[in-house]
């Protein structure tokens, strides 16, 4: 144990991020990953600090831009286990366009979103997943926007692995994380998480009383069922794998990446360059 170490953190005591980090380390250790082969990528936000607190390679980029950097790093070196670990604002707000299109790109990375339905780092404004009517210092008359449903979006846009988990259910979270990391292709997990400082609506008790494990009989390969499951909300919130489908990932679809030798280990052949030069003569 303790292959992955924790560095000093700057989160509020009692924050859901702590347990997500603990579960992440456990999942990586149980999968037998070496920290040197793991690349943690994030943008900006409280959740986005996660890569700072775990002993692994880390790329802490710009707000909303974790996904493009992460997929490119994986394209460059397929031997890296690339995990984007960041928040709802980073993933669905500032980075919404990248979320949509990287589902389509299907690069073999894992995307964990700590979804606390609020902006933590900027102290309490509405996030894309904040409930309608939720009053904040900015949304003074209550949030007027329809909350974004990331699960529904991911399933409908064609993601091959879509799951929801809860930061307060460790055993379940670890198992979902392991499945997501092991999935070949883009794997997405929305992790419900209380923000003890800025979200007094979606509290630990709120989630605890609503989440339920998806029934054993549920078939995550059935897309129509998945769409229905994705739309379940309110008093009962399903957690578990909502949709799973194995499709060729980016590397398998790109002829030149499908050679077994990572791009980073190859060099351009000057003879090819010479041949190209001759084509212009």
């Amino acid at each position: 144990m303790d292959t992955f170490k924790t560095y000093e953190t700057a989160w509020c005591p009692g924050c859901g991020n702590f347990n997500i980090l603990r579960c992440l380390k456990k999942a990586l250790e149980e999968l037998g990953k070496s920290p040197y082969e793991v690349l943690m990528v994030a943008g900006i936000g409280q959740a986005a600090k996660t890569p700072q607190y775990i002993s692994a390679n880390r790329f802490c980029g710009l707000h909303g831009r974790a996904l493009p950097a992460a997929v490119a790093a994986k394209i460059a070196n397929e031997k890296l286990t690339v995990i984007v670990d960041t928040g709802d604002g980073d993933s669905y707000g500032e980075g919404g366009n990248h979320f949509m299109h990287n589902i389509r790109r299907n690069v073999d990375i894992t995307h964990f979103v700590h979804d606390n339905q609020i902006y933590g780092l900027t102290k309490g404004q509405a996030s894309p997943t904040t409930g309608e009517g939720h009053v904040t210092d900015v949304q003074v008359d209550g949030n007027a926007n329809t909350p974004f449903n990331p699960i529904l979006m991911a399933v409908s846009a064609g993601a091959g692995f879509v799951a929801r988990a809860f930061s307060g259910d460790s055993e379940h979270l670890v198992s979902i994380m392991k499945e997501a990391i092991s999935h070949k292709g883009y794997a997405f997990v929305d992790i419900l998480q209380p923000c003890i400082s800025f979200n007094k609506v979606n509290t630990f008790a709120y989630y605890k009383s609503r989440v339920y494990h998806i029934e054993e009989s549920y078939n995550p390969a059935d897309k129509m069922e998945a769409l229905k499951k994705a739309m379940e909300a309110g008093d009962k919130i399903p957690i578990g794998v909502i949709y799973r489908e194995t499709r060729p990932d980016f590397h398998e679809k790109k002829q030149i990446l499908n050679t077994g030798v990572p791009l980073v280990d190859r060099r351009t052949d000057l003879q090819v360059v010479q041949k190209l030069i001759r084509e212009f003569v």
Binding site: P68, A69, A72, A76, I256, T268, V272
Partner: peptide
């Protein structure tokens, strides 16, 4: 691209394009 062994990726926008280039560069290509 196939001849030279290069990945040419059309990004969803220019922000993605430059962040991809940076991610790839960080990873050593």
């Amino acid at each position: 691209s196939n001849e030279t062994g290069m990945v040419v990726e059309q990004a969803e926008d220019e922000i993605a394009a430059v962040n991809m280039a940076l991610g790839a560069s960080y990873a050593g290509v």
